[in-house]
Simulated assay, not measured.
Amino acid sequence: MSTAPINVAILGAGRIAVQMARTLAGMAADPRYRDLVAPYAVAARDADRARAFADEYGFPVSHGSYEALCADPNVDLVYVATPHSLHGEQGAMCLEAGKATLVEKSFTANAAQARELLAVAERTGVLCTEAIWTRYMPSRAMIDEIVDAGVIGEVRSIGADLSYPTTHKARMTDPALAGGALLDVGVYPLNFIDMAMRGRAPERVASAYQPYPTGVDAQSCTTLFYGDVMATATSSMVTTGDRMGVIRGTEGYLVVENINNPQRINIYDKDHVRVTSRTVPEQITGYEYEVASAARALLDGAAECPEMPHADTLRIMELMDSIRGIWGLSYPFER
């Protein structure tokens, strides 16, 4: 059984790894978290790069290979910070080594890989959870409370967008790395809608996309039908979007500023008058919630985190597969 503080390691040393490193450094200095988690190690395929990363962000240990990280007996929890196409293989490697695993979204490149990875987690009995931070943030409960209070009436429509120009990142345009907008930014609008619908599966899905010259999706629009509720998700890697999430009801609507990292929730009445506004709590980076949840689950001997159980991860992966199926888009390793 693991004991606190939980030693956290990062597998990968790219952009998202930097964000996690800053988060762990902040948690180590924060009285709310410093007895729970400790930044311990980072691994990269280049030993010098790993050492430089560790020195810059205050990790006492670095490894020049992912295998060495998995063999380190002092590692408790591994954050997988590599491209989507590698998550399944690398997540399984961590689990087989007995390391609890926090896998950056998208959990894997497709549902088949997700099932395989979750099967390894079940067989080994080791904690495995998806690191999609909005699922763990306090804003999720705040939105649910507003809707449950009946302030906006009966929910009938939902809209969510996340769009950033990101084609300058090589992995985003590379089909072999499961590039495209859907798995990187499109997953957030879909999760926003899924959370608003409390995990209810849509009865019908309609979608269209525009391809990037490399063949991956540049931008798309997806409409999901849930009985008398219609939800629309848009995402793009070639435009700047408003990042807004809107839940519309019979008596008003609420607007979430930035579904990727909610800052404020504004509530409007039928006359479009803002009746109240709620600000989310101050945070380190926003990543601390998923790390704390994984650490507590590990201490409790749990196999999954309550904020993002395996069933939710698999449902979103299956939904994204179905959307790509409508488009007729597959990745080279799927053919």
Rank of each mutant, 00 (worst) to 15 (best):
M1K: 08
S2V: 12
A4P: 11
N7P: 08
A13S: 14
R15Q: 15
V18Y: 03
Q19K: 11
G26T: 10
M27R: 12
A28V: 06
P31I: 07
P31K: 11
P31G: 10
V37C: 08
A44R: 02
D46E: 13
R49P: 01
R49K: 15
R51F: 02
Y57M: 02
Y57T: 04
F59V: 08
P60C: 10
E67K: 08
P73I: 07
L77C: 05
V78N: 11
Y79A: 13
S85L: 03
E89S: 09
E89I: 13
A92Y: 00
L95W: 11
A97H: 07
V103M: 05
K105N: 00
F107L: 14
N110W: 01
A111R: 06
A121Y: 12
A121W: 11
E122W: 00
R123C: 06
C128A: 15
A131Y: 14
Y136L: 08
M137F: 06
M137Q: 12
S139F: 15
R140S: 12
I143R: 14
E145D: 15
V147S: 01
G150A: 04
V155P: 00
S157T: 02
A160V: 05
A160D: 01
S163Q: 11
T167V: 15
D174V: 04
P175M: 07
A176S: 15
A178M: 02
A181R: 00
L183P: 00
V187I: 15
V187H: 05
P189R: 04
I193W: 02
R198A: 07
G199E: 03
R200I: 12
A201P: 05
P202K: 00
A206E: 13
Y209I: 01
Y209G: 03
T214Q: 06
C221I: 09
C221A: 13
Y226K: 06
Y226L: 07
D228M: 03
V229E: 02
M230P: 00
A231F: 13
T232V: 15
A233H: 09
A233L: 09
T234R: 15
V238W: 04
T240N: 13
R243I: 07
I259E: 08
R264Y: 03
R264A: 08
Y268R: 03
D271F: 12
R274Y: 02
V275T: 15
S277M: 14
V280I: 11
Q283S: 11
I284F: 07
G286Y: 05
E290Y: 01
A295N: 05
L298V: 10
L299R: 07
G301V: 01
A303F: 07
P306M: 10
R315V: 02
M317P: 00
L319C: 04
I323C: 02
R324M: 14
G328P: 12
L329W: 05
S330F: 00
Y331S: 05
R335E: 10
